[in-house]
Amino acid sequence: MTGIAELEAPLADPHLSDEALRPAFFEWLCRMGDSTLILGHRTSEWCGHGPALEEDIALANTALDLIGHTQFWLGLAAEVEGKGRSADQLAYLRDAWHFRNLLLVELPKGDMGQTLVREFLFDAWHHLQLDWLAANSSSPRVREIAAKALKEVSYHLERVCDLVIRLGDGTEESHRRLQDALDRLWPYTGEMFTGDAVDATVAGAGIAPDPASLRPAWDALVDEVLEAATLTRPQTRPDAQKGGRQGRHTEHLGFILAEMQFLQRAYPGATW
C-alpha cells in the first residue's frame, strides 16, 4: 500500500538538522498538526448525521482535508523530532497533556451553528497562517506543506464565510443560533494570536509568523463577514480561554483521545 499523503522527494531543509531549534520546531509542528487532527475529528463526527445530504458530503470533504494536513504536519514533526516516531504514533500514542492543539478545536461539535462558526473563526486564522507560511517561511518543507494545504483551506474559508453570512442573515432562529455560537466560542479565539517562547523561537528562525502579527487581518475579515451576516462581534475578552498550545486542555480532549486512540491502546504494537 502506498502512503496517501506523501509529498515528492523531500526538499533539502537546513532547519531539520538544527539541534538548537529542534524542540521549538517540533513543538510548533505539533501545534499545527494537532489542531488539524482534532478539528478533523470533530468535523468527521457529522458524517451520516448532517442536516442535508449535500452538507454531509461537504463536511466530510473538509474533514478529509484536515486529516490530510495532519499527516503532513505530524509527519514532519516526527522527522524533526528524530526519535523514530511516526505521524500515527504522535497522533495515537500521546496523552492529552502532550497535545498542542488550540482549545477552540476540541470543543464539542454542538449544532451546525457551533460547527460552522468554529470553522469560520479557525479558517480565518488558518488561511492567514498558511498564506504567510507558503510565501515566507524559511523552511522549504513548511512552505511546501502550507502551499498544498492553502488550496484546500481557501475553499474551506470561502464556503464557511458564505454559510455564516447566509445563516446569520437567514431566519430568526438561524441568526440566534449563530450569534449564540459566536458568543460561546469568542473567548477561545485569542489563543490563536497569543505567542509564547516557542513561537518566538520559530518566528526568530523565520519559520513562522509572530502569532500576534496575524491579528489585524483576522479582525478585518471577521468584522466584514459578521457585518454581512448581521451578527454582532462579542465584547467579551477574546483570550479568556487558552493553554491548549502549551498542553493545558479542556475536559473534552481526554474523551476525544479515549475514542480516537482506543485500538492503538488496546492492542499495542499491532499493525492495522
Binding site: 496517501i4 468527521s44 478529509l64 486529516i67 476525544i256
Partner: peptide, 24 residues
Amino acid sequence: GNWITRAPTLERKAILLAKVQDEA
C-alpha cells in the same frame, strides 16, 4: 460511520471517511 472516530491510523481514518462519504 460508527468507527470513523475510532479508526486505528490516520490513513484508515481517511479511507473510511471517504467511503462513508461516498455512501451519502
